[in-house]
Design a protein around this nucleic acid. Structure first.
Lengths: 228, 228
DNA sequence: ATTACTAGCTTCCGAGTAC
DNA sequence: TGTACTCGGAAGCTAGTAA
């Protein structure tokens, strides 16, 4: 939480990029104003304020000023930088879903049984999934929104194929954890051609998830998708 | 140059650090306001503005809201982050000085001749300096300010020593370039016990700098100190 | 308990201008 | 040319309060 005023950030960053960390650099308020998208007067005020706060030093150089950022000013910006990095990196790369177990239409089992998919699952996911998907009905609009955006994330990509009779679409897989770790090696599927809307999540796993966890239709379930 | 309003930065960073990159997270405006150091009303306005600008999405969750940062909002912050990093890193790690060559008091030659120093110069600097220092009188207040702060920078440290009769103070060395590259392997000295004030710069080099460059007393000279 | 509207105050900015 | 003052208006914030 920087104690520097927000308006001054652009100014001090501009000074730093001009090399004012270690040297006094000559800047005019007109030029500075243009670079930060403000007026000459605003730039002048910024420099005055920054000087009074001890964030910069100034020295008269003829008619102009030469400006240098002080240690205090520099560490202020570095603090802000750290906050930003923390906010951007601490981002837990996971998407959480909650829903209720529902019975599928038996389609999952059929698709999982196709050799064209099984081969690729084994190769790219590391296991051959149990012949059947766990279907989860999402219980809130926010999860459906997230579900809709899931396909944008980098995925384990299973190619579509043709068996001579018909073609089968691609499948994007996302590694996932069920109920806070009860099942760790599941995967959520995003299908090119799905029969469900955004409120449904299809999950596979090496074993039957229902058996492994003892959950039954109607039970509440949490799914956490891990992003790369 | 972010087009996001400065006031909104803190808010969106706070949301991101709460994990609102990929998930809708529940936040109250009161709590948010406290965390960004503003009132509940200000936080509420921020969320409204950010939503209208497409930087965040919101979904009613009972009485509260659940908030998620959109791709647009995220890239906006990443842009700002990049600007900051550029400003902090592009900082050319060098301090520039300008002054006039003056004749020293012959002390430089004496100290350079002491074995207790020569051994260390050879070891840490990579050469035994010419027996004499180039003395430069700085010609502007801004260079004297910089001179005063030079000692804070990380240096090549030459330990003090005693020869049984008296003790000699430490010396901090900073690699430097003279006149834009005419001499590349010089070093500026900061002495524990100096006889000069902040307006004087003492420089050493493997060869006589005056001879190598043909400069004489009174000539103007530029010295660029390289920082680690 | 929430969110968010309104009124009024403070801060910030830009135009004009002194120096 | 420069910097920086005053002044009027815009923007941002808070307190009070409605819903």
């Amino acid at each position: 939480m920087p104690e520097i005023k927000l308006q001054h950030i652009l100014t001090i960053v501009e000074l730093l990029s001009k090399g004012a960390r270690h040297n006094f650099v000559e800047v005019t308020t007109t030029e500075l104003g243009k670079n930060i998208g403000r007026s000459q007067q605003a730039a002048s005020k910024h420099l005055l304020d920054l000087e009074n706060s001890g964030y910069i030093e100034r020295a008269k150089k003829g008619q102009k000023f030469a400006v240098k950022v002080t240690d205090k000013g520099y560490s202020e910006i570095q603090g802000l930088f750290s906050s930003l990095r923390a906010a951007l990196e601490s981002t837990p790369a996971a998407i959480d879903f909650e829903g209720k177990v529902v019975s599928g239409m038996g389609e999952g089992a059929y698709y999982m049984s196709l050799e064209g998919y099984r081969k690729q699952f084994k190769e790219k996911l590391g296991y051959e999934p149990y012949a059947g998907t766990l279907n989860i009905r999402l219980i809130d609009q926010i999860f459906m929104n997230a579900r809709r955006e899931l396909g944008k994330q980098p995925s384990i990509f299973i190619n579509g194929f043709s068996d001579g009779t018909r073609t089968y679409g691609w499948v994007k897989c996302y590694r996932a954890v069920i109920n806070d770790g009860r099942v760790n090696n599941a995967a959520v599927l995003v299908l090119e051609r799905t029969h469900y809307d955004d409120s449904m999540l299809e999950v596979i796993s090496p074993e039957s998830i229902k058996q492994a966890t003892g959950m039954k239709n109607g039970d509440r379930v949490k799914v956490q998708v891990q992003l790369a």
